[in-house]
Amino acid sequence: MTNIVLTVNGTQVLREVEDNIFLAYFLREQLGLTGTHVGCDTSQCGCCVVHVNGTSVKSCTMLAVQANSADVTTIEGLAKGDVLHPVQRAFKEHHGLQCGFCTPGMIMAAVDLINTYPKPLTAEIVRDEMEGNLCRCTGYHNIVKAILAAADEMRPVVTA
C-alpha cells in the first residue's frame, strides 16, 4: 500500500492505494467517478482516457501510484456547473454519440487534441489523431464533425 496525494478535477485527494491498482479503477471505485469507462482494459479502445498533468492518457494502463502528485482531469471535471464544455456541447449538437459508452474518452481525447495540436485541424488530422479511440455504434462521421465544430469555437485562429 502507498499513500498518494493528487488533484482530481481541482480537488486535492489523499488515499492509501494498493500498488497494483490502475488509475481507471481508482477513479471509478475509490472516488466514485464512474464517467471514466473501461471498454477493453487492454490499452486499445480509449474509453478510459483522462488528462494527467494536461496530457491525455489511457487510465487503464497507468497505475494509480504513478499519478501521485499529479493533476488529473476526468470527464466530470469539464463542465462548469450546468454549462457544458464546448466539446461536450458539440457532441450533443452534432449527434456525436449514440449509446455514449465511448463518449467520455472521445471527449477527453478531443479536448487534448484541440488544446495541444500545433497546426490547424482538418477532418483527416482529426481521424488520424483520434485513432486511439474506438466507437462501436455512432460511427466516426459525426464525432469528427463535432470535434471540428468545437475546435472552431475554441481556437478560431488556427482552424483551417
Binding site: 490499452s43 480509449g46 482516457v49 496530457t55 491525455s56 492518457v57 489511457k58 494502463t61 497507468m62 481525447a109 487534448d112 487534441l113 489523431e129 485513432e131 486511439g132 479511440n133
Partner: peptide, 9 residues
C-alpha cells in the same frame, strides 16, 4: 507509433 495516448506515455 500507436496512437497519441500511447505516445504520451
Amino acid at each position: 507509433i500507436g496512437d497519441r495516448h500511447v505516445r504520451h506515455r
